[in-house]
Design a protein around this nucleic acid. Structure first.
Lengths: 252, 252
DNA sequence: GAGGCGATTATGTATAGACAATAAGAAAGG
DNA sequence: CCTTTCTTATTGTCTATACATAATCGCCTC
């Protein structure tokens, strides 16, 4: 079939063959996959090996397994995508442009109602509020409004954020366990327009993110991008198969 | 810890215990996980059982395994999120609102340069171009511009899309293997504003998606949402652990 | 001391067998 | 005909063992 030489583990071989039948549409959703016993005879290997292949497929959501009934090809449900939202500094440097940032505002304070709502903490919790502007090639790239929970990240209070912006600083320091993103579009108000060097009323892409570590709120951030200068891109294939093994996915 | 009764498989138990140590930060990135042999003695089970737990963790990206060296806690890298973009019909019905759609335009044609660019096919390929407006509770919810590759989905040509909108119809019929999304913000032009019952110049959230099956282009779609009425939400925790097992992630 | 070479350790893959849990279908009884 | 019970097919988990593979460590030679 493909160019893959046969030095693959047996279970991967089996997995890929079944996968190919499913992905090509030869086995449509609802089609019954041969039982483990049948596959054992077909491939001449032990049941554990077949089981490993089938379990992986089930894990990836390609098949559903029911005792006594057998395994069946699952029908894809939702259009899912994985958005990788990189650290801003890395993102800009990755495009080959010069990167710079400036801190527009900074205040350590007790969380007001709005802060508490954003960060998901009790009011009066100590927080550090920051407003940062990032530049790509000396052009405003994104405005970052951030709240850091000083109860969980006390070191932030004394940090000047001179060398690295708060996002990078946090990412180097805290291993987060949960994150929640919301993406929406808004019109630029006067302040935002001025900060981003764009027309007032122009469309902005807004990404809000909250991050937790083991249930404890770490930070909330709102990133406001000029809508005409930035877009988020994501790619997905169901079941997270070997990346780059396909070739048709290229595009403009 | 939690309320889970102990009727869990042995390997899941082991997996969760290790997971908890990693997620809590007790085992920081770079920390060495006990070897399979050590875990076998610790838990009093066979190596295969321990192996299953460790393999799952490695698979989820929580640990890295190197022969002879052992297993080590991995360090999380980028801010990733999984956006589930549901079928529009299902999405609206899921909110409890009445759903309706209307087809504003429909044309089967040979792909022009723009069509070819969007869909990623050769010019002059036969395509079906559709413009659909979706309503939630009789209010315009989103405008859908779609191209369907008739070379791969010939059945679409004769389909009236009376009962189900094209997105739902396709999803029921074609198992896609790859999808690519781009999200951006634009200002509504006169036509878009009229279609979405919003102010001209208002911010719109635009999601563009291309879908392939085994390298063959299936469809391209551009969804234009009124920015103030819609937002995309995604949640993520590294390693895709049991969903809903945590409680801190609630929010507005 | 530099370089190579074997021993050791840890993971990767595979086997054969066992019992449990589940659910579908068949048989028996009212 | 309906309900209950039995049988059986299929997946889920686990054990004990074996050999392969990779990489580190330390010894041995030069």
């Amino acid at each position: 079939m493909t160019t893959t030489d046969d030095i693959l583990p047996r279970y991967v071989e089996i997995q890929r063959e079944l996968e190919a039948r499913i992905m090509s549409g030869a086995w449509p959703p609802g089609h019954r996959v041969p039982s483990e016993h049948e596959l054992v005879e077909l491939y001449g290997c032990s049941r554990m090996t077949v089981n490993k292949a089938l379990s992986a497929l089930a894990n990836a959501g390609l098949i559903l397994r029911r005792r006594r009934s057998g395994s069946f090809v699952a029908s894809p449900k939702s259009q899912e995508t994985v958005l990788e939202i990189h650290d801003i500094k890395a993102e800009i440097l990755g495009t080959g442009k010069a990167y710079r940032f400036e801190i527009l505002a900074r205040e350590a304070r007790r969380a007001g109602p709005e802060d508490a709502e954003h960060l998901g903490v009790a009011p009066d919790t100590q927080v550090l509020a920051l407003t940062v502007r990032h530049f790509a090639a000396e052009r405003p790239f994104v405005v970052e409004e951030r709240l850091i929970n000083l109860a969980t990240v006390p070191a932030a209070k004394a940090e000047p954020f001179a060398a690295a912006p708060p996002g990078t600083w946090l990412l180097d320091r805290i291993a987060w366990t949960d994150a929640e993103h919301a993406i929406r579009a808004v019109s630029a108000n006067a302040q935002t327009a001025a900060r981003l060097d764009m027309a007032r009323g122009g469309a902005c892409l807004v990404v809000e993110r909250r991050t937790w570590q083991a249930g404890e709120a770490i930070t909330w951030v709102r990133l406001t991008y000029p809508g005409d200068r930035h877009r988020l891109v994501g790619r997905f294939n169901p079941g997270g198969l070997r990346p780059g093994a396909r070739e048709g996915t290229k595009g403009a």
